[in-house]
Amino acid sequence: MQLFRMLSVLSLAAVGLACGHPHAHDEHEVVTRDSIKIAPGPSDTQIQFAPLPSIADSVTIDPALGYFAGDLGGGVHWVTDGSYSNMFLVSTHGVIVVDAPPTIGHKLLYAIGNTTRLPVTHLVYSHFHSDHIGGASLFNASHPTIIAHAETFNLLASLSPRDPLRPLPHVTFEDKYTVGVGNQTLELSYHGPNHTPGNLFMYAPVQRIALLIDVVFPGWVPFTELGLANFVPGFTAAHDVLLTFDFDVFVAGHLGRLGTKQDVLLHKKYMEDLQASCVSAINGGFNVTAAIGPTVAANQGNAWAEFKAYLRIAAQTCADNTTSRWLGVLGAADVFGFENAYRMIEAVRVEYDVLGPFGLS
């Protein structure tokens, strides 16, 4: 109820500003710069985004194959279609596969078959999202042991009806688990929710390769709404956890390039800058009453409309400040600038407890 009382106070002040503030119309124009729309506008398919910097360059995908398979040494290989990526380890007794993105699909079988005749004996789920493990049923014929965090099992088991494309894991764990097959070792660990509950940190110690899916996007800013992050504080903290691993190569699960520690450090700086910009926006970065005044005047008594106007201008303020500093530094800083800022604004408010005008009065 306190939120509604605060909105009512802001609404009364904003109505007056909407009628007499000399810049009310301009402020309202900023509010309407919302890239979250129910349906595309006439210009949405014609937007020209900023050129990608070279840091975002992908490996070359052979159009005839539709995928790229790279040898990382020590029996480890990665596969990408330019949008998704995963990894497999060839041991003396079988193959360990990490994730099975459906967009790569049967090409993953080709990549493994072109590398070894050994069967896939183990399949690791990084997390429960279908865009990363929706191709798991392709391995049903070899009956691999499927390994995942207990949270991943619970989330998959809760689906009704069950998804036959994502078989339930056979082995689950809470904190740490080591997959050992022949001469290959893959260490799995869980450090709390980040992108999703159950999202794993994975590490091949001999080859010094780390995997963390949907958190760090090497050379790029995060996918929309911070990669659809379930828990932003955990998503942000995951960068520091990842940096505790002694790795040379990083597999991120997305896009057509591998990462390094420098990529993780740069991505971490982006996240810190985005968070600081959003905190600044909430803590007086714009005139709230002037910004929401036109919406209040046009939607009397509609608290949701008022609050949407507030969240949109807060996110746009944050996005404008952040994007201006990251264009040309990371790929596509302008593409999901608003959406990432919008998710961070909500995280700052309800997960970090930075409430701005809606805090304790």
Rank of each mutant, 00 (worst) to 15 (best):
N340W: 02
V95R: 06
N154L: 06
L211I: 13
E339Q: 12
P40D: 07
L200P: 05
R343Q: 12
A238L: 11
G337H: 09
M344C: 12
F88Y: 08
A341E: 10
G94E: 00
D71F: 06
A229G: 15
G259S: 10
N230R: 12
F247D: 00
L52N: 15
L65Y: 00
P22R: 15
L123M: 11
A229V: 05
P357F: 07
F217Q: 12
A157R: 14
A24G: 11
A315D: 15
Q46G: 05
V215L: 09
A24F: 05
V251C: 04
T116M: 02
G73D: 04
E29D: 15
T92V: 05
T236S: 13
G284F: 00
F247A: 00
E27R: 13
W326T: 13
P42R: 09
P101Q: 04
P233L: 04
C278N: 08
P53W: 11
A141Y: 12
M271G: 11
R33A: 13
F173R: 01
V215A: 09
Q207T: 12
D214T: 08
A291I: 06
L155W: 05
A100G: 08
G356R: 07
S142F: 04
I213F: 12
T317D: 14
A141I: 15
S58E: 13
A13D: 10
W220M: 12
Y110W: 04
R343W: 11
F139L: 11
R349D: 01
G293F: 03
L211A: 08
N86L: 01
K269T: 14
E151P: 00
